[in-house]
Simulated scan of single mutants.
Amino acid sequence: MIDHAPDLVSVRDATDRLLIAVAALDNASVTEPTRLSGWSRGHVLAHLARNADALVNVLEGRPMYVSGNAREADIERDAPRPLDVQLADLRESAARFQKAGDAPADWSRTVELRNGVTDSASRVPFRRWAEVELHHVDLGIGYELEDVPPEFVEREIDFLAERFGGHPEVPSTGLATDEGRVWTTGGGADGGPIEVRGTAADLLGWLAGRRDGSALGVRGGALPTLPPL
């Protein structure tokens, strides 16, 4: 079982980095587009705040969201808010998540996330860490995948390689970093094996749908097209 306690510390540290960076913005820049199609910075910040509350629901045994439509409506409602309101909401929702994470609990229990997905409660803090790190990059305010803690990069590649393992749309694919770390994924579609190599940041960017993979080296076929997360 994953030790959730260090991940809670990492979530707090990542949130602190995000809050400091966002505090340097202004109201106009909050309305500007991000690297996520159709989302302004306000949308990303609203999503991060509501995701923190949704994961509190998960830890406390409630449905993560009332519904998919309600999730989207909450983001649209909160996206236009001014910077000071966004910051306060992000800070306060993060504190609620940390409080829920600090409460005594059976971290080996199974919890339900969105769309019927289940996981160990012990992995919920890491899932929140991923939300904060990747969406900080999505904001397009100077924080890149190369700036993300290396431990997170490797663990998120682990997570995504496992997620796409055996996927019916992904051929057998070997992943390798320039530093020598290797993974395997896919295997459910015809073709392969395909070898994909690059920096850890570029591999993560491709797996997480943040980069097109053009910086990666590919052997044995074309770079696989990955399904959306």
Score class of each variant (00 low, 15 high):
Met1Ser: 14
Asp3Pro: 06
Ala5Pro: 08
Pro6Val: 03
Asp7Leu: 13
Val9Ile: 10
Val11Gln: 11
Val11Arg: 08
Arg17Val: 11
Leu19Tyr: 02
Ile20Gln: 11
Val22Lys: 09
Val22Glu: 02
Val22Met: 06
Ala23Tyr: 11
Asn27Glu: 11
Asn27Phe: 10
Ser29Tyr: 12
Val30Asn: 00
Thr31Ala: 15
Glu32Trp: 13
Thr34Trp: 06
Leu36Phe: 09
Trp39Cys: 03
Ser40Leu: 05
Arg41Cys: 09
Gly42Val: 06
Ala46Arg: 03
Ala46Phe: 01
Asn51His: 11
Asn51Glu: 13
Ala52Glu: 02
Ala52Trp: 00
Ala52Cys: 14
Asp53Asn: 14
Ala54Gly: 09
Leu59Thr: 06
Glu60Trp: 01
Arg62Leu: 09
Tyr65Met: 03
Ser67Phe: 07
Gly68Trp: 08
Gly68Arg: 15
Glu72Tyr: 13
Glu72Ile: 12
Ile75Val: 15
Ala79Cys: 09
Ala79Asn: 09
Pro82His: 06
Leu83His: 07
Leu83Trp: 04
Asp84Ile: 12
Asp84Glu: 14
Asp84Thr: 15
Val85Phe: 12
Gln86Tyr: 05
Leu87Val: 11
Ala88Trp: 09
Ala94Ile: 01
Lys99Met: 14
Gly101Lys: 02
Pro104Val: 05
Ala105Leu: 03
Ala105Val: 00
Ser108Pro: 10
Ser108Gln: 12
Ser108Lys: 09
Glu112Met: 13
Glu112His: 10
Arg114Phe: 13
Asn115Ala: 14
Gly116Asp: 10
Gly116Asn: 07
Gly116His: 04
Gly116Glu: 00
Thr118Tyr: 10
Thr118Glu: 04
Asp119Leu: 12
Ala121Gly: 04
Val124Ser: 02
Pro125Gly: 07
Pro125Arg: 06
Phe126Val: 09
Arg128Gly: 06
Leu139Glu: 08
Leu139Phe: 05
Leu139Cys: 06
Gly142His: 00
Gly142Ser: 07
Tyr143Gln: 07
Tyr143Lys: 04
Glu146Arg: 03
Pro149Ile: 04
Pro149Asp: 01
Pro150Leu: 09
Arg155Leu: 11
Ile157Ala: 00
Leu160Glu: 02
Ala161Phe: 02
Ala161Arg: 00
Ala161Tyr: 04
Glu162Asp: 15
Phe164Ala: 08
Glu169Leu: 15
Glu169Ser: 15
Glu169Val: 12
Pro171Tyr: 01
Ser172Gln: 15
Thr173Ser: 06
Gly174Ser: 12
Leu175Val: 08
Leu175Asn: 06
Thr177Tyr: 08
Thr177Asn: 09
Thr177Glu: 05
Asp178Pro: 10
Glu179Ile: 10
Val182Lys: 13
Thr185Arg: 04
Gly186Lys: 05
Gly186Trp: 00
Gly186Asn: 11
Gly187Ile: 03
Gly191Asp: 05
Gly191Leu: 02
Pro193Arg: 08
Pro193Met: 06
Pro193Val: 01
Arg197Gly: 05
Thr199Ala: 08
Ala201Val: 04
Ala201Ser: 12
Asp202Tyr: 00
Gly205Leu: 07
Trp206Cys: 07
Gly209Met: 02
Gly209Cys: 03
Arg210Leu: 05
Arg211Leu: 13
Ser214Cys: 08
Ser214Asn: 12
Ala215Asn: 10
Gly217Ser: 14
Gly217Arg: 15
Gly217Asn: 12
Arg219Val: 11
Gly220Gln: 02
Ala222Asp: 15
Leu223Met: 09
Pro224Ser: 05
Thr225Leu: 12
Thr225His: 09
Pro228Leu: 00
Pro228Phe: 03
